[in-house]
Design a protein around this nucleic acid. Structure first.
Lengths: 363, 363
DNA sequence: CTGTTAGCGCGTTCAG
DNA sequence: CTGAACGCGCTAACAG
């Protein structure tokens, strides 16, 4: 009389008690092992028996308890994702792509937001790793020592958009450096000289790479100075005034969000883009093409990145050695926020309604 | 000799075997029950004993297995979230707010994207509900029958931004109707007459509410027609041409994303906002204030909504009857995308550089 | 206050 | 191919 079906002891006696594998087994006149085999589909069961079990399970509305499955098998079909800022369109486009790919294979996503706090990342990561089959770190800002801790757990951990040699973590990343080089080259070709870079978050590898390219721009004849901004619209907005003190003819922004903020501030100041100041972003978030003027930026391939990230982490979970991914290429797309600098410097005098684009050749 | 510590049988023999509660118990010379009590902090344990256990646990790096905890206790400290589109900034801000509130109390978030497919929502919901302590449905599109199925599971399920009477689901929502009424009133006061509403997704309650308000606008003297758009930038972009056939002086958009798309299309067409056509959005996503012109829109309070949603679902999980939440108010914010209609209809002739805002009174 | 003992629901050997 | 039995790691009675 011990285990007779409905142990009425929880609060949910009326109809909420979930159907267990035992209930199905009894109703189908088989053992729980057989039900388990049918449900997982791993072992083989005689066809008619399997059909009967399946039908009974359906009728009873049986759905395995994930916690029990996890405990018994050690598999959760879940991946953890740590992201610095859940409210950045760049990240969530990557997440969406990953999620789509993962969902297609029955995996779900446990997401944690570190709020741009590098010290939060390790604890969050370890916590997720305890519940998920694998972990994806999006643009992690944590110190290398922390990465190392994660790496030696020997669990499937993938870094996206951060490259660190010597830590044994597989990586999928975009080639920020060469795209930023192209952006600088584009500006130089347009005739710009005094340019300022509105830099991103301190611990961001992407910023490091973009900054590195920016620092090389003297090779194109650019005099580039950096001003700290950040990764948000607000940061871009706030950094413009400091940047303008340097009398630049172009502003190169860490990302599109910063460019958005900068654009707004410039317009508040009565400066026109690109007539008075050229402006570039990075990432090509969906809004950038629709801004006015549409932003010149680099298409950081969110979709491909997300898909590739899933592929790699999936392989790792399956115990395969992941294929090495070369850096993904970021295409620079020239839109209307960049043009040749005006002859009279960044504070332009009132001008006729020229549509930009083919402005005055600069000296 | 059965359970002697490190059962070397899995593949991870060297150093990857997690420390179990038993290991801690043995090392501390207490029973597993005591360790459990110390870790959960529910029951009381003699102070010195507790301290010893804690220290041993720390030294061993013990961290409880969540699956086992879940199985034994029935609690996962996880909430599930179903969202129609993981790539919509509006949802993200709500999710981020919820996540922040939830994380502060040790809860995590399992997120599923239904990709605007109403039929995906029920299976996703049931799956999440099996693993989480509660479920939050963001702007669910699923049919009422499905909601009813979820409701009778007697599990904690909360709807956000959808109000359905008669289904027993608690709800947190924004008052879309009155805000939209205000938007229409604002346009009427400016002197607009021919207005078209770029409508949102068919199964969206928010669209229903906004549409309902729009349909009442004849009371203000507006002649409003609706054109189906959707909820994305692309949808707004695509709907403009159809809308313009009606020669409107203003476009009222389902949300800011649609407004963004519409704005871009209008500009491609050489129409100026607001000089030639006024434009309104809804939600006030972070980009709207930075668009050019900045969008007149309604501030759908994402932060408050997310916080409130967490409060309510948390109460439900704790078995309390949730407080009834009145509709949250959405403030209309007038920015620069709306102005009085130009006297000569929507295809304006070249005009002097008037700054908009206080334009000509219309007939 | 503490230890002993059952399970939680399922996957998985191991016999048959 | 199938069933019996064990154990995943932990919490929650129940005794003491």
């Amino acid at each position: 009389m011990a285990k007779n079906g409905g142990p009425i002891r929880g609060a949910d006696a009326h109809q909420g008690r979930p159907v267990t594998i035992q209930a199905v087994a009894k109703a189908a006149g088989v053992s729980t092992a057989t039900v388990s085999r049918v449900m997982t589909g791993n072992s083989s069961v005689r066809a008619d028996l399997a059909a009967r079990v399946r039908q009974v399970a359906d009728e009873l509305g049986y759905r395995p308890n994930p916690a029990a499955q996890r405990l018994a098998s050690g598999v959760s079909e879940t991946i953890g994702v740590v992201v610095p800022n859940l409210a950045n369109p760049y990240f969530y486009d990557v997440i969406k792509a990953m999620n789509t790919a993962a969902a297609a294979q029955g995996y779900q996503m446990l997401i944690a937001d570190s709020n741009e706090d590098p010290d939060q990342e390790l604890p969050l990561s370890r916590s997720l790793l305890r519940q998920a089959d694998g972990l994806v770190l999006l643009s992690p800002r944590m110190p290398v020592a922390s990465l190392r801790v994660l790496a030696q757990d020997a669990a499937p951990v993938l870094m996206v958009n951060r490259v660190v040699v010597g830590v044994g973590l597989p990586t999928v990343a975009v080639d920020n450096h060469s795209a930023m080089l192209e952006i600088c080259g584009h500006l130089a070709m347009l005739g710009h000289r005094r340019v300022v870079y509105l830099a991103g978050p301190e611990h961001s590898w992407q910023n490091t790479e973009r900054q590195r390219a920016a620092d090389q721009s003297p090779a194109f004849g650019l005099q580039l100075t950096s001003v700290t901004a950040g990764s948000t619209i607000g940061a871009g907005h706030a950094a413009v005034d400091r940047a303008l003190e340097l009398k630049p003819t172009a502003l190169v922004c860490f990302n599109d969000l910063v460019a958005f903020g900068a654009l707004a501030r410039l317009q508040e100041l009565g400066l026109r883009v690109p007539d008075d100041v050229s402006l570039t972003g990075f990432d090509d978030i969906p809004f950038s093409g629709y801004a006015s003027p549409p932003l010149t930026t680099a298409v950081s391939p969110q979709l491909a990145l997300g898909q590739r990230a899933w592929q790699v982490i999936h392989q790792m979970i399956d115990g395969k050695e992941p294929d090495d991914t070369p850096l993904l290429k970021a295409e620079v797309v020239i839109r209307h926020s960049t043009a040749a600098p005006s002859v009279c410097g960044h504070v332009a005098s009132p001008q006729p309604d020229l549509t930009g684009q083919t402005g005055v050749a600069a000296g």
